[in-house]
Design a protein around this nucleic acid. Structure first.
Lengths: 194, 194
DNA sequence: AAATCATAGTAATCTAGTTTAACATTTATT
DNA sequence: AATAAATGTTAAACTAGATTACTATGATTT
């Protein structure tokens, strides 16, 4: 069954009985998206918290000048959502778009509440994964302040070696908070330095 | 009893029985710090998640060049901690220091685990507050990328009108990710514009 | 195979924000 | 009240990164 990867993931944090696993499996939704499709669009309410089985998504924000700013990428074994919109069920600030054909397991807000009542251990699970997300987010703030664009690029490559090859360079530039031209310059500098 | 503000805060998210409230009160620790004292220091394990009853703290990171970068401020009715260190009980990346005399209610990691076992509803409570923190943290990343320093300063004033008067300007500059000299320039520009 | 579109590279010019350094003001200490 | 310490201001020179604009390449479509 295509829900297995999620159950394995949960099992790293809390232990569910077989019955509980079955209940989770029966309530979450497995779904495939094509490259280019949107999971959430700025202005819509974000319906799901999504565990990615395969593929890649980007979360981005379009500002008043029409400029895109990529907040995060997510690949297999990661989660994605517009958490702010999801937890308050209000219009999303961000877009989540598939940049590869992507398989994911989706948990709607209401279903998650049902699951929380039925399996209180899942409160613990979701607490633990959001804590991890919070820590990663704070680290990113620090890096953006204390490191140069070149250093941030190098750290990105080290931290997520799998992602760089899968995304266009202009998206990586946006994630790093620089223009595509400047990333291009950094890359040619790094080649010369060797 | 000095634990009441925390109980009021929790009550906004989950409802505890009187017995449960008593249990929380008996396990958490009320404590006063003087201006300048540290709650956590970079390299030590962060022992507590702290609810601030009164006062003000700053969380900052000292980089390899000895430069301080302020990640967040916290005032009464907020939480502070080095969450990464706290949840993994490994050395902290950040310092948390009181910048006013501060009263807080502290929950140690072990005590929190005991409370989770005894009162599973608290998993829900902590999940909810960390979700809020995560959302705020992501918003800050977006703002840092899409807004100029002047715009960030204006938004800070609007968002946290109480904080600016309580902290030295060089700390606000650090929080905004700019030098104190440049913040000074921004302020004089804003005065001229009126 | 031509044509279009999305992606990437290069280089000149420009600007937001940094650095350095000198000076001013406020707050704390004796 | 005098001195020192911490905080804030101003301005000139500098730099990381943006902007603009043109060229190159590969992928996709017709």
């Amino acid at each position: 069954m295509p829900i297995k990867p999620l159950l394995n993931y949960i099992d790293k944090f809390v232990t569910l009985t077989e019955k509980e696993q079955d209940s989770v499996s029966s309530k979450v939704v497995y779904r495939k998206y094509l490259k280019g499709q949107y999971i959430v669009q700025q202005g819509d309410v974000c319906k799901y918290q999504c565990y990615i089985v395969s593929g890649c998504t980007r979360t981005f924000y379009v500002d008043e000048n029409g400029q895109e700013h990529i907040i995060m990428f997510a690949i297999e074994d990661w989660w994605t959502s517009d958490v702010g919109s999801y937890i308050t069920q209000t219009p999303a600030d961000y877009n989540v778009q598939c940049i590869e054909n992507t398989e994911m397991i989706q948990i709607s807000y209401d279903i998650r509440e049902v699951l929380f009542k039925e399996i209180p251990k899942l409160e613990r699970f979701f607490r633990m994964i959001i804590e991890k997300g919070f820590v990663a987010s704070q680290k990113r703030i620090v890096r953006n302040f204390s490191l140069s664009a070149k250093e941030r690029y190098i750290i990105f490559k080290e931290s997520y070696p799998k992602i760089e090859q899968r995304i266009p360079q202009y998206m990586l530039a946006s994630y790093l908070g620089i223009t595509k031209e400047f990333l291009s310059k950094i890359k040619s500098q790094l080649i010369l330095e060797k």
